[in-house]
Design a protein around this nucleic acid. Structure first.
Lengths: 183, 183
DNA sequence: GAATTTATGTCAGCCATGTTGACTTTTTCG
DNA sequence: CGAAAAAGTCAACATGGCTGACATAAATTC
């Protein structure tokens, strides 16, 4: 813990001692900004697809995750997106009305509404994945042989420790569904 | 270009041929989602600081960049944030009114309004950098010796090619200002 | 079997932050 | 001088967050 904290700029509480910036501080601030710029361009990609069909970024996120996890519960989606039921409800209703997502009662627990992409929803999700994958593939190609593994490790480590296991499980399950073609 | 495209899922136009998912596709989709989750937690950090003072994420972004580039023009900030003058104007007015940012006419070109952090603004910016740097330092420590360099390369490559040089110049200039203590 | 809890949905209203369009002022530059 | 640039402002609107209150159906618990 001490070695980590030594990398950081002084807390503003300790107003007396504001140390000179170290090279390590500089590298960290650079990464803060690069992360911002990279994400800014990354999420702008789907906008081209969204604009013509009158949807926004909230629709993108829902379509993407429902497609990756066919049959997921509303609760699961809420936990992923970290928004309220009401916010999700609005977007979800539009997607169901326009035939991108279908909601069926759960077989074992019939209170649940399980979310599935329609063929139309799947096609849209594929467009999103295609355009964002293209950017990532370009970035990996431009940054060395181990860059895929490195990026994965770094991004995972950026996630809150208490969420990390969940995210890993979620992604592994989605990959498995895709691999086996299970529905 | 061909080798990059071979990594990608089929475009939904070519509806006839939907190939089986490859391991490369899977890795790319995983990174799409890891990027989402990492950014979700990354931008949630400053919220703790923002909530008590009644500011939002838009205020965070402005305070951060004004602090990193003391004396920047309004136009420069608009180009970084990619929002409209009107959206920025609202947030900027609040920050000026509450004494976090100062706006002075440019010396050589007096049409310009150059933006400076006040001491109060600098202190706030330091809090933001501290909390976000802590997360990044933790992530780097957890993901190997070269992870800083790797993350930097990857994030830079994720930025639109036409923006990349600008971002590099911007960051280099900010680091220089911080290093030399120039104001 | 009744009471409670859970999963979901919905109404109403508010807030933050993005947008477009039109227009003004000041200053610089050709 | 006239055009262009930098900035600011007013008005109206859209998106996507939020809280609070409440309803329904199904599962679970006592």
């Amino acid at each position: 813990m001490a070695d980590i904290n030594s990398l950081l700029v002084a807390s503003p509480d300790g107003a007396a001692a504001v140390p000179a910036e170290t090279a390590e501080d500089t590298a960290l601030v650079d990464l803060i900004e690069l992360f911002f710029f990279a994400y800014r361009d990354f999420v702008a990609d789907p906008d081209q697809i969204l604009a013509p069909i009158g949807f926004g970024r909230a629709h993108h996120r829902v379509v993407h995750f429902v497609n990756r996890h066919p049959g997921m519960r509303v609760t699961d989606l809420l936990d992923i997106l970290r928004i309220t039921k009401q916010s999700l409800g609005r977007v979800l209703r539009e997607l169901v009305d326009e035939g991108f997502v279908e909601s069926r009662a759960g077989a074992s627990d019939r209170r649940q509404r399980l979310l599935y992409p329609t063929p139309k929803g799947e096609a849209l999700a594929r467009e999103f994945v295609a355009i964002q994958s293209r950017r990532i593939a370009r970035a990996l190609a431009a940054s060395g042989s181990e860059s895929g593994t490195n990026a994965r490790r770094f991004l995972l480590a950026m996630i809150n420790p208490e969420n990390r296991a969940n995210v890993e499980r979620l992604i592994a399950r989605a990959d498995e569904i895709q691999r086996t073609g299970r529905r």
